[in-house]
């Protein structure tokens, strides 16, 4: 209906404000998505960093891209959780009986994930700057980094939406968080893959987080990005498409 579509943006903003309030009122969420990554960054730089050989002058310069991805990965479980609660508590049912575009509620959650990650990533970058992070990158490189981070956020958000919408229990909804947490740890986020034993190294070099980390690192240090960026983009877009189709199927069946 025309009137409903005219209000799609308005409705999505109402949904965004609602779930942003959920995030700001959940200390647990703030700790997991912002404080924890900062704590890891402090730990790695000031406790372990001295022993790690990365070939960069400043370990924090090497580390930051991985920390940003960890922050995003930590937020994915909360997307599932918030979607699951909405579905379970009947609030989606209320929305669906109102003259609102059917997908506004779902897109509201996606938008929330983008906005809340943007905020937490900015805080983390500020802390990194205080810790001595410096980048020669120009505005275009930064925009490219922002674009890749947004794409990575969307990728994990749509993956997380599937269990959030289809799980029967809250534990089921949150289970996706664990494998997602692990991806950045088994990548070149903290140490170069060269130092890893064979099978781990093979996994690390062929999973999406490594290409994304390498791309961001290259952009931030003004190095040529090479073909890694295409691998990163292909991973993200491929996963988004598949996860989006699955999530929409569950959402439509149930809404």
């Amino acid at each position: 209906m025309e009137t409903i579509n005219n209000y799609f943006f308005n409705d999505m903003v109402v949904m965004l404000r609602r779930s942003m309030r959920h995030i700001f009122r959940s200390l647990d969420t703030i700790i997991t998505v912002t404080i924890m990554p900062i704590a890891m960054m402090l730990l790695f730089v000031y406790v372990l960093g001295g022993a790690i050989q990365t070939g960069t002058k400043n370990y924090v310069d090497y580390l930051l891209p991985g920390i940003l991805l960890i922050a995003i990965a930590n937020s994915a479980g909360y997307v599932s959780y918030r979607l699951f609660l909405d579905k379970q508590r009947g609030i989606f049912e209320r929305f669906n009986s109102m003259p609102i575009a059917r997908s506004a509620a779902l897109w509201g959650h996606v938008l929330t994930s983008l906005v809340s990650n943007a905020i937490s990533l900015m805080v983390i970058v500020l802390v990194a700057l205080l810790m001595g992070f410096r980048s020669p990158a120009g505005i275009l490189s930064w925009l490219a980094v922002a674009g890749i981070l947004a794409l990575f956020t969307l990728t994990l958000t749509w993956i997380a939406a599937v269990p959030g919408l289809s799980a029967k229990t809250v534990d089921g909804a949150g289970v996706i968080a664990y494998p997602i947490h692990f991806l950045p740890l088994i990548s070149s986020a903290f140490v170069p893959t060269k130092s890893m034993p064979g099978p781990v190294r093979a996994f690390a070099e062929h999973q999406p987080v490594t290409s994304i980390v390498e791309t961001i690192r290259a952009l931030l240090s003004n190095q040529p990005v090479g073909h890694e960026i295409w691998i990163a983009l292909a991973w993200c877009i491929g996963i988004i498409l598949v996860a989006y189709l699955f999530a929409m199927r569950v959402y439509k069946k149930w809404a």
Partner: peptide, 14 residues
């Protein structure tokens, strides 16, 4: 129309 479902559909965090 307007619906009040069987189970309260309120946002508890708000």
């Amino acid at each position: 129309i307007s619906l009040t479902g069987q189970f309260a559909a309120i946002d508890e965090i708000l």
